[in-house]
Every structure is written in C-alpha cells, then in structure tokens.
Amino acid sequence: MPLSKELIEQKLNEKFSGESFVFTEHRNELTVSLDKKNIAALCKYLKEEDQLAFKLCEDITAIDWAKRKNRFTVVYHIFSIKQNFRLTLKADVDESDCNIDSVSSVWKTANWHERETFDMYGIHFNNHPDLRRMYMPEEFEYHPLRKDFPLMGIPGSLSLPKNKN
C-alpha cells in the first residue's frame, strides 16, 4: 500500500496515543510538529516500522525565531526510499532549556548534522556521542547563525596568526 498522509497520521496516533501531533501539508509535503520529548522514540519508529521505512535522514537543521517564546525549531528532513515519500519533523526548543534528544543512534548521519546545528545555533543534543563544533574553531564562544550574532562577527573572537616579522 502506498504511503499517504492519512496513513501516517493514523499510524502515529495509534502508536503514540495521548501525544498531540500537528499535521500540516504544503505543496504535497507533509510536516509533523511534535513535542521535543518524543523525538527519539518517534524517529526510531518511523525508521523501523516496515511500512514507513524512513531510512534516509537528509538533513537536520534549526530555525531561530529570535523573539518567539519557543525560540528555536529543530527541523528534520527524512525520506523513505521504499515508499518514495518525504517527511518533515519539527520540534520547538526554548532558549532557557536549550536541548533536545539526539537521533544519531537512529540514523548515523545525524551525528554530523547535529554537530553542525549545535555549532551554528548552540542547541545541545542529549546523548550525542561526540558533540563538538563542526565548522568553527573549538575555542570559539558564539553560535553564528543565531539572529543576534552580527554578520561581521565579534571582533577578536577569532584569532589570526601572529605576525613574526
């Protein structure tokens, strides 16, 4: 049976009864918004359930809404090769409690995606095996894709080699 929006809704509500998911559709692509505490279990289910088989994690990133109450949204783009179906997951994270469970145990590739998101937004991924910065130097103190980070950076925060001559 080909995968449809209705089937996913039905399956998720069955499996996670009592949890509230918000399903939205845009240009024929389905988005599921959920509570961040469910993310690891939900991802595991989406990958391992035979009919869904979301085996490919395309990207994990985040959105900084700057002034909103839940400041960040972590976004997961996953794809089912078997069903040729693309799904987006969204979970809100607040700045005061800036962490979410890692899904790197579900998809190996999530390891680096999460490191990048941590580097750029400062969102901590719980149970991540190796949460180091991805691009910026280790001693850098800021998270450049946050909206309050100035485009030209913070003077002196990145070091240049000393001029010897």
Partner: peptide, 15 residues
C-alpha cells in the same frame, strides 16, 4: 564573503 568567518584580506597576517 563579507562575513564573520572570512579574513578580510590576507595582508592582515601575511606580507
């Protein structure tokens, strides 16, 4: 690349 990660001219650290 007028942005934070790029050195705005290598003459800042090289002759």
């Amino acid at each position: 690349y007028r942005s934070y990660p790029v050195v705005q001219g290598i003459d800042q650290f090289l002759p």
